[in-house]
Each structure stands twice: as structure tokens, then as C-alpha cells.
Simulated assay, not measured.
Amino acid sequence: MKQDWKRLEAWLLANEAKTLADLNPPATATEIQEAERKLGYGLPSGYLECLNVHAGQQGKAKWLFDGNEFLSVRNVLLSWAAWNDLAEGGDLDGLEAKPSEGIQPVWWSRSWIPFASNGGGDFLCLDMAPAPSGRLGQVIEIFHDVPNRKLVAPDFDSWFKKFVDGKVG
């Protein structure tokens, strides 16, 4: 993870310095412990390694992940809570999801941890309770207004490496 971040940071310095400057410092142990307590899940090791380099973006520059903002720990929790509020309030009742294999057939699950957002209500999430054929910590894409629930990567590590390789070359 650290090597991928070094490669990405070097590329950002040369090509998107404002985005590099927009990255937050590493998450503190307290921030991570509090997030895991609120979420009810231990975060996957690759994502934790990522947070130990940069804990999201400030949101004042171009979004890091190809049209998706790298969410700060605070914004992860706010986004997760907002989805839970919608579900608990009945706003998602009757909505039928169309998931990729390995993803629960629900519109929203408390076990999905958003880590990137397009700002329009759509998220990349860590799936902490996949369907039986899925993998713990897999990266999924969810949409607020479309039933598709798409499997993007088997885990955060491979997702991040593929992102960096695609960006840096």
C-alpha cells in the first residue's frame, strides 16, 4: 500500500498538485477506533493501511478517485449514517436491488462502508457482510437511484492497486 501511495503521490505532484495538497494527513488511532466502534466492524487491513497514509480528502480540489471523492473518516461516518437513517425511516422500503453475484440483494446494508462518493449519492463501499459467494471486504458500487449493486474488486488492496496502475501507468 505504501509503495502504491508513493507512486501516486509522485504522479499527483507532477500532474495534479492541488489534489495532492487536498489529501488529509493519516488518521489517528483514536479516529480509527471511534469509526470502528460506530460502524460495528473492524476495517479491512488494506483500507486501514490506506488511512494510515492519507485519511481522505478535504474536498477542496479535484476528486482523487476518477470522479469520486476519497472520503475523510468523518464523511465516511456521515454518509453511512445518512443511508442508515433512510433505511430505518422506511425510505428504502420496497426498492429492489439488482446485485452482482456475491452482494446481498438489498438496496442498502449497514454492513456497507462508503469510502468514496461522486457527490450525487452514489458510493464505492467496503462490503463487510457479503452474500455467501462474496468476499469479506470486497469493493462494491452502489447507486442511490439505480438498483444495480456492482462488484468492483475482491478487496480494497487490489482495487487501490488497479486504480494507481491505471492513473500512473
Rank of each mutant, 00 (worst) to 15 (best):
L48G: 00
R74T: 13
P25N: 13
L23W: 00
S72Q: 08
G166Y: 00
S158A: 04
T30R: 15
E9W: 06
C50V: 10
E31L: 09
Q3M: 14
P154N: 05
E34R: 13
N84P: 04
K62D: 06
I103K: 00
L13W: 13
E96G: 05
D155F: 06
A153E: 04
E34P: 07
P105C: 10
Q58A: 14
L8T: 08
A35D: 13
N118F: 05
D66G: 01
L43F: 04
G169H: 07
W107H: 12
L77K: 03
D155H: 13
N15I: 12
W108M: 05
L126Q: 01
A27P: 10
A82Q: 11
W11Q: 03
V106K: 08
K162H: 09
D91L: 14
D4I: 00
A55K: 07
S109N: 08
D22E: 03
K60Q: 13
A35E: 03
E69G: 05
A87K: 13
F156W: 03
G102R: 01
L151I: 08
A55C: 11
V106S: 07
T30K: 15
D155S: 14
Q33P: 06
L78V: 09
A129R: 00
P114V: 11
A153M: 06
G59V: 02
L78C: 12
G42T: 15
S117V: 00
G121C: 08
M1P: 12
A87R: 15
K98N: 13
L124I: 05
V53D: 12
R149E: 09
G166I: 10
W108A: 00
N84D: 13
A55S: 14
A21D: 15
N24T: 08
G137F: 04
V146M: 12
P26Q: 11
L151A: 12
V73D: 12
L20A: 05
G46W: 03
S109F: 00
S133T: 15
W5C: 10
L39V: 12
K6H: 14
A10I: 07
Q33D: 14
T19N: 07
F115N: 01
H54N: 14
L64M: 09
F115S: 00
L13N: 11
L71S: 02
L78K: 10
E69Y: 02
G120V: 02
G56P: 03
W83D: 09
Q33T: 14
K167H: 11
L86C: 13
K150A: 06
G102D: 04
G89E: 09
M1D: 15
V53R: 11
L48V: 13
D91K: 09
F65Y: 09
L95D: 03
N52P: 07
S100C: 02
D157L: 04
L12H: 07
G169P: 09
V139K: 00
L13Q: 14
L23E: 03
G46Y: 04
R7W: 14
A82M: 12
D66P: 03
N68F: 15
W5F: 11
W63H: 14
L12I: 11
E101W: 10
